[in-house]
């Protein structure tokens, strides 16, 4: 997809069990920058390199998981257009007022067939990456914490991933990049889709319970930076699920780990560019282990059953 329409994942609101502990984790371990707090007690973060005001929002409650995942669209006319297309497709939409999320314009919110809340928005205040827009320097991303490049994508779990795929491709202009088939060779176990030229902007796995989060992912600059992230995780006794390793699917290098509330996060690097004229890649059930974890070539129990 040319870079019009839906541009990229822009924000994820996560539920956490203890805000103080979580803020410490997202700043000191993840190396994100806190950019604000609102009257509801939500805390906002961005990576150092992101230009928009926020990409991760934390809300304290007694359950973990994903409240909603937002995509930025090109402009307000595009937002209005998608709202109409969603309604014409039979999807109920809701307008969230500007300012409900700090420094963020109106959002068009809808619920996926898998029960996840998705938002589209056109405006979020550009606070910059500290380097300016005139004769900038290269930012040397030093100092403590993992300090990823950006919040990059999410993997969600729910029942009707076929309905999700249809909605994203037919209404929102996404392309299918890769898929994994179940034993029957027909049913999708999982799909990876993009709205840009990335290997994935969103992924989905079929799961008996709707509305679940597998992980929110952060892009690193290099495989070496992924390994540095692993050192930081061990130094802070972060719960690591698996890795450092590589995915066969998307070919990205990866670590899966958990925040202090049990929300899975990923630091990853690499993967290839996908253009809408490219054939989707299909993985068989027999080779799914190599597809998900390319080096040890086995799915672990946690990949399919540990979600928040």
């Amino acid at each position: 997809m040319a870079m019009t329409g839906v541009l990229r994942p822009g924000h994820a609101q996560l539920r956490v069990l203890d805000m103080e502990e979580s803020v410490k984790f997202y700043t000191e371990v993840m190396g994100l920058v806190e950019t604000g707090r609102d009257s509801q007690g939500r805390v906002y973060f961005k990576t150092r390199q992101e230009r928009d005001h926020n990409s991760i929002i934390l809300r304290e409650t007694d359950r973990a998981g994903l409240d909603f995942f937002g995509f930025k669209v090109l402009d307000k006319a595009t937002l209005d257009d998608f709202e109409q297309k969603l309604q014409a497709y039979g999807v109920k939409t809701e307008r969230m007022p500007a300012g409900d999320l700090l420094e963020t314009g109106e959002r068009v919110r809808f619920v996926l067939p898998t029960g996840h809340t998705i938002e589209l928005y056109a405006e979020k205040t550009d606070v910059g990456n500290g380097m300016g827009y005139y004769d900038p320097d290269v930012d040397v991303i030093d100092g403590p914490g993992i300090r990823p490049v950006r919040m990059d994508h999410a993997l969600i779990y729910g029942g009707d991933i076929d309905g999700n795929l249809k909605l994203f491709t037919e209404v929102l202009g996404f392309s299918l990049v890769e898929r994994v088939k179940l034993e029957d060779g027909e049913t999708d176990l999982a799909t990876w889709i993009t709205c840009s030229a990335k290997a994935h902007d969103l992924a989905m796995v079929r799961h008996p319970e709707d509305g679940k989060l597998h992980h929110v992912s952060f892009l690193m600059e290099s495989w070496e930076q992924v390994l540095r992230a692993a050192d930081i995780m061990s130094r802070h006794r972060v719960s690591i699920d698996i890795g450092p390793t590589r995915h066969g699917i998307t070919q990205g290098t990866t670590i899966y780990f958990f925040d202090p509330s049990g929300n899975r996060l990923e630091t990853f690097c690499g993967g290839y560019q996908h253009y809408p004229d490219m054939h989707p890649i299909t993985w068989s059930w027999e080779e799914v282990g190599r597809g998900v974890f390319y080096h040890n070539r086995q799915l672990n129990d946690a990949f399919l059953s540990v979600v928040s």
């Binding site: 069990l17 203890d18 007694d62 973990a64 998981g65 719960s239 699920d241 958990f258 925040d259 202090p260 509330s261 049990g262 929300n263 899975r264 946690a302 059953s305 540990v306 979600v307 928040s308």
Partner: peptide, 23 residues
Amino acid sequence: GCRQGGCGVCKVAVLSGEYQAKV
């Protein structure tokens, strides 16, 4: 599972003894 309270796979019943619990 996640070791952080998110996934619920490590649910146990404490039959005897005292402990400190997080949220």
